[in-house]
Design a protein around this nucleic acid. Structure first.
Lengths: 153, 153
DNA sequence: GCGATTTAGTTGAACATTCAACCATCCGGA
DNA sequence: TCCGGATGGTTGAATGTTCAACTAAATCGC
């Protein structure tokens, strides 16, 4: 017997469309600003942030991929570029000869420190300034629920 | 005088991180499923959807770009591919000789009709199934507020 | 009418991402 | 100890996206 599609009801439709538009434009704006001000896309910024917060400003490639929400392949390519830019360096892992350690250089840290204020300002301006405190709270709960739902399954 | 950065407070930090994770994983999942089941990325699916809902299943390139939330350049490249796949056709605009009209072919419509149930099922499974009705309502309001804020400025 | 500006759309190059294939090393068990 | 699978990571090719430059046609101002 054919399984019937559970189509979206009008409310869900509206929600999904609005969500698509909002998230697309939000990320487009942040990406464009970051590219203009710091010379890197948001995904690369995320990599530098994760490294900067790790102990010793270094992480195994796999852990970094996990932390930055990137595939291993994508991270390999990205780190190759970041290394060429002088912002990241790679070292062999002493305990696992397959492993590579990515580590944030001083230059990379300085670049990140220079880019952060503008980026945070952008996040505030584009996102938080538009929402009430209650809405920020709702968005947090929704996002946490969703993140759990999506990564837990 | 130097302008102080308005850093994010801990609640905002948490919200922003959770949002980034949730929206990234959500879109990654939908994109992967659509690529696997329909042979196209989500952005291309959006283009076909917009065309399918337009009167006569056709739109001027600019209007289509606007509707699908795409840059004009991106749309040009995308439509070139969709045309090669036989899903879209281009025609000259009769009232403006600079203009081009993109129109959904029957084959394109059939492909979309075949892909839609699976995709909607994915949206439901990944997004709506995890949220309470109240949360769906909150997400709608937040997204609409945000979309207005971002496109209005 | 006519030059200046704006609008519509395309193009190619540089860059980013995905996918599958691949090599090397590690680990578990007979 | 050695075999088979799992893990860590990279690579190249195909595909998408961005950016700036470009052509052509419409529109504005006079």
């Amino acid at each position: 017997m054919a399984v019937m599609t559970r189509w979206l009801d009008p409310d869900e439709q509206r929600t999904w469309r609005a969500y698509l538009t909002a998230s697309r434009v939000l990320m487009d704006n942040l990406d464009r600003e970051l590219q203009r001000d710091a010379g890197m896309p948001h995904a690369y910024y995320e990599i530098l942030v994760q490294l900067s917060e790790a102990p010793g400003r270094q992480l195994r490639m796999s852990q970094l991929a996990q932390a930055a929400g990137s595939s291993r392949s994508r991270l390999s390519h990205a780190v190759a570029r970041l290394e060429a830019a002088g912002w990241v360096r790679r070292e062999d892992c002493p305990t696992d000869r397959r492993g590579q350690i990515a580590l944030l250089t001083d230059e990379g840290f300085a670049t990140l420190a220079a880019a952060a204020p503008g980026h945070v300002e952008g996040v505030r301006r584009h996102l938080f300034d538009a929402l009430s405190p209650a809405q920020v709270d709702q968005l947090r709960r929704i996002s946490e629920t969703l993140a759990e739902h999506l990564t837990g399954s």
